[in-house]
């Protein structure tokens, strides 16, 4: 039988600080993105969508990799907090994948002329979105804690294969989407220094937002698990 414990882990004590730091760095990133960074030479002001679009996509990848790690940890240890981290990260991942698709559409309309088109990066990202919605749906269909966690963990392990597919789809297939700009093979970042700095700060801000949301949602899930255990007893 699984015992549900809510140990006061370090992250819970850091939560207020994490929230303040996230807000501060997000404000800096916002000013840099809207004021300090120059407009793009070709796309003009519309390229500023990049400063939210790229961090959102990065957070989606990060969230689903964390789901994978937490899922392996659940299958290995059966520790309930790993399942709490997995569900928290999956929900955040779905949120940011959805935001990535919406922001991408907003960017595509003025640059490609369409909101949506047949494009490998768009389609694989949409598939990833549906996949993790299915993950959350599968969790909701079972009431038994251990079975649900195990089923979800297996899906979390299988679904992570899509993350590299999404990232590499622009290299494998003829793509309208631009190729990687920062992490690209055979060269450094192909961006103006101020644009690159703004993008990196935005990614750091996004990562902090993720960490903050993850710690808050995990705490909620642990409280929910504790309530279920009390009801069982």
């Amino acid at each position: 039988m699984t015992t549900t414990t809510t140990r006061p882990v370090l992250t819970l004590r850091l939560r207020p600080w994490l929230g303040s730091m996230t807000l501060a760095i997000s404000a800096v990133a916002l000013v840099m993105a809207l004021v300090w960074a120059p407009p793009d030479a070709v796309q003009g002001e519309v390229a500023r969508v990049m400063y939210v679009h790229v961090p959102s996509a990065w957070l989606a990848y990060l969230a689903f990799v964390v789901v994978f790690i937490a899922s392996v940890a659940w299958l290995w240890t059966r520790a309930p907090w790993t399942d709490a981290v997995a569900v928290a990260s999956a929900e955040i991942g779905v949120l940011f994948t959805g935001l990535t698709l919406v922001q991408g559409s907003i960017w595509a309309k003025p640059t490609w002329g369409v909101w949506w088109t047949w494009e490998p990066r768009l389609l694989t990202t949409a598939a990833m979105f549906v996949m993790y919605v299915g993950y959350l749906l599968a969790r909701g269909l079972s009431t038994d804690f251990e079975r649900r966690a195990t089923r979800a963990a297996v899906l979390g392990v299988v679904f992570v294969v899509d993350v590299p597919i999404v990232h590499l789809s622009v290299l494998w297939l003829n793509s309208l989407h631009q190729l990687p700009t920062v992490l690209r093979a055979g060269g450094g970042p192909s961006l103006d220094d101020r644009m690159l700095a703004t993008l990196l700060v935005s990614v750091v801000a996004g990562t902090l937002i993720y960490a903050w949301l993850l710690s808050e949602r995990t705490a909620l899930e642990l409280a929910r698990q504790a309530r279920i255990l009390r009801e069982r007893l």
Binding site: A127, V130, M131, A138, L141, R151, V154, V158
Partner: peptide, 23 residues
């Protein structure tokens, strides 16, 4: 196999399998 013991397996299997099978 994952959805085997669920009543909603007819719904869940395509939802889980189709996105994974896109590539």
């Amino acid at each position: 196999l994952l959805a085997l013991r669920l009543r909603a397996r007819a719904l869940l299997v395509p939802i889980l399998a189709l996105p994974v099978l896109v590539p």
